[in-house]
Amino acid sequence: MKKAKASLITTFTWVLVFLFFFPVGWMFLNSFKSENDASSIVPKLFFNIDTSGFQRLMDRGMISYLEHSLASSVTSTLLVIALAVPAAYALSIRPIKNVQDALSFFISTRFMPAAASILPLYMIFKTLHVLDNVGALTLVYAAMNLPIAVWMMRSFFSEVPLEIVEAAQIDGANFRTELTRVVLPIVLPGIAAVALICFIFSWNEYFLATLLTSNNAKTTPPFLASFVDGRGLFLSVLSAASTVAALPVIIAGWIAQKQLVRGLAMGAVK
C-alpha cells in the first residue's frame, strides 16, 4: 500500500517534470527539423534530421554576436569578482561599523532598477562615442552584478572560522599571505558560484543590451529578438538560434548545480 502510494507520487513527479521541461525539449527538437516539419500543424515527434537551421544562423553572422556576449559576460564577471572579493573580505572578516553601512548600501542598489541610471549612461556613452561598444556594455554589466555578488560572497566569507585567521595573524602572516593562503582556499567554491551566477545574468541580459548596442557590439539576446521578421517560416531557425544561445548557460548550470544552489540559497539565507 505504502509502496503503491510512493510509486504513484513518483509517477506524478515525472509527469510534472516532463510538462515543465517540454518547451525546452521541443525547442531542441525543432532546431533539428526542416522548416516545414517544425511548422507542421500536427506536431511531429519523428522527422528527418535537418541541420540547415544552424547553417542559416552562420550565414546571418550569429558567431560575432556570440563573441560579443562572451566578451562582455566573461570580462564583467572577472571585474565583479576582482571588486567583490576584497569588499566581502572587509565586510565579513574585518567588519567595522561604517563598513556594515556600506553593505546595506550595496544591497539597496540592487533594488534600484536599471531605469534609474540608464538615461545618463546612454547620454554619457553617446558623448564619449562608446555607444554600441562591448567595453561600455561590460562596465554596465559589472555595475549591475556587483551588489548581488558582494552580498552572496559576504556570506561565503563569513563561513571562514575567525580562529584560523587570527592564528595566521599571530603567526605573523601579513595581509596578502593571510588572504591568499588562508582565506581564499576556503572560499574558492563560493567565488566559483558567484562567478557562475554573474556570468548567467550577463549572458542572458536583454534590456540594457537593446538600449546600449546596435550593430558593432550587439549581443545574442537582441539578435534573437530581431530574428523574427514575419516573412516565411522561421520556427526551425529560431529554435536553432535559441538552442545555441541557451546551451552554454544550460550546460554550465547543469554541471555546476551544487554551486548554483549554494550561491542562490547560501547568499540569500544568512
Binding site: 517534470v17 515543465f20 521541461f21 518547451p23 525546452v24 521541443w26 525547442m27 525543432n30 517544425a38 548567467i200 549572458w203 542572458n204 536583454y206 545574442t220 539576446p221 537582441p222 534573437l224 529578438a225 530574428f227 523574427v228 522561421f234 520556427l235 529560431l238 529554435s239 538560434a241 535559441s242 544561445a245 541557451a246 548557460v249 544550460i250 554550465a252 548550470g253 547543469w254 548545480q257 548554483l260
Partner: peptide, 22 residues
C-alpha cells in the same frame, strides 16, 4: 536538472519559444 533548466535558459529565447512554438 530538468526542472532548473527554465531558469537557465536565456529569457529572450524563452519568450520567443513560448510565443511561437507554444
Amino acid at each position: 536538472t530538468l526542472v532548473i533548466t527554465p531558469f537557465l535558459i536565456m529569457p529572450a529565447a524563452a519568450s520567443l519559444i513560448w510565443k511561437y512554438s507554444m
